[in-house]
Structure formats: C-alpha cells, structure tokens
Amino acid sequence: MIKIWSMKKNEDQAAKKRPKTSAAQIRVQKDLTELDLPSTMQTKFADEADILNFELIITPDEGMYKGGSFEFSFNINANYPHEPPKVKCKQVIYHPNVDLEGNVCLNILREDWKPVLNLNSVMVGLQYLFLEPNADDPLNKEAAEELKRNREQFVYNVKVSMRGGSIKGVQYNKVIP
C-alpha cells in the first residue's frame, strides 16, 4: 500500500478536523448571517432551530405594488448550493410572473442558478419582480396581457387584487395590512 501519510503537510496545525455539520448547513449559515437586506425585506423563521425552511416578507416601498406585504416560502435541501432553494409565493397574487399556485418565474431560481449565487441574490431578484413586473415571461397570462395592452388598467387591477378583490373571476388574497 502506498504511503500517503508522509505527503500530508502542515502536520503541526493539523488539529483534528471532523465537523459533523454538513456543507449545505454551513453554506446556509454563511448566507443567512451575511444577508444584507433593505428595510423592505424581512425573514421569518417558524422554527428558529430550522434554518433550512423559512419565509421572506417583501413590502415594496415604491412601484405599483407599494403598500402590499408579500410572503414567500424558502425550502433548502441538502444539495444546496448545487441546487437552488425552492421558492413559492404563499398568497394568491395578481402578478404576471407569479401563477395562482405560487410558482415564480425568476431565471436564477431555475435555468440560470449557479452555486456562486446566494440567498441574498435570490431575495433581491424577488424584490425586483415587484418593481418591474415582466410581461414577456408570463406565468399569469391574463395579467401579462393586461400589462402589455393597458398599463393603467393593469395598475388598477393590481390595486383591486391587493385589497382582496377579484379580477376576471379569480379571487386574490388581501395583502394590505
């Protein structure tokens, strides 16, 4: 058997190294404790001991969604950051890039995810959707068409939906506190 041991360098500093904390856990600790969020975003942990599952609350202070309070669930699995976190909107909201089941169309949550991205980038990306809804990547087709066709009507619909009204037969959740 080859003698590998002699190749080990830095024997002096070789303190026994055997962390039982998984790489995903350490990475999430790093991401969370280094979050740099504006006052419009807040994290909420149902169980403070479980840092892999939590909520993000976005309260835009400008744009057409101003005044609303939007809740997203974050689920992180053991394959993070090889796989992106799973993010869903918890409310039924009127938004071109969010469908009625809460799926979110944000490129870095799927096709453009890379391990160098972190939770902060995902959160900033989500907030951006409320400042600049994108009619070209629709998940709620009705909303996207309205945004393209008649921006004023769209803004009005957003207000109605945020108060818990219904648009074209769909009842939306009240998101204004």
Partner: peptide, 29 residues
C-alpha cells in the same frame, strides 16, 4: 482523491454541468 491531501469532490463541485432546467414561463406558455 487522497482526503485532506489532494483536492476533494466538493472542491470540484463547480465543474459539474448544471441539470437542464427550462424557464418556467416557457413551460407554462
């Protein structure tokens, strides 16, 4: 891989091809 002596599997994780994923809006529309 000679653990702690050479690069390990985790060191090369960013060399992996990412799983193919399609934009969710393309799928939907």
């Amino acid at each position: 891989i000679l653990p702690t002596v050479t690069s390990c599997y985790e060191c090369s994780l960013d060399m992996l091809n990412k799983p193919t994923a399609f934009p969710i809006c393309t799928i939907a529309n």
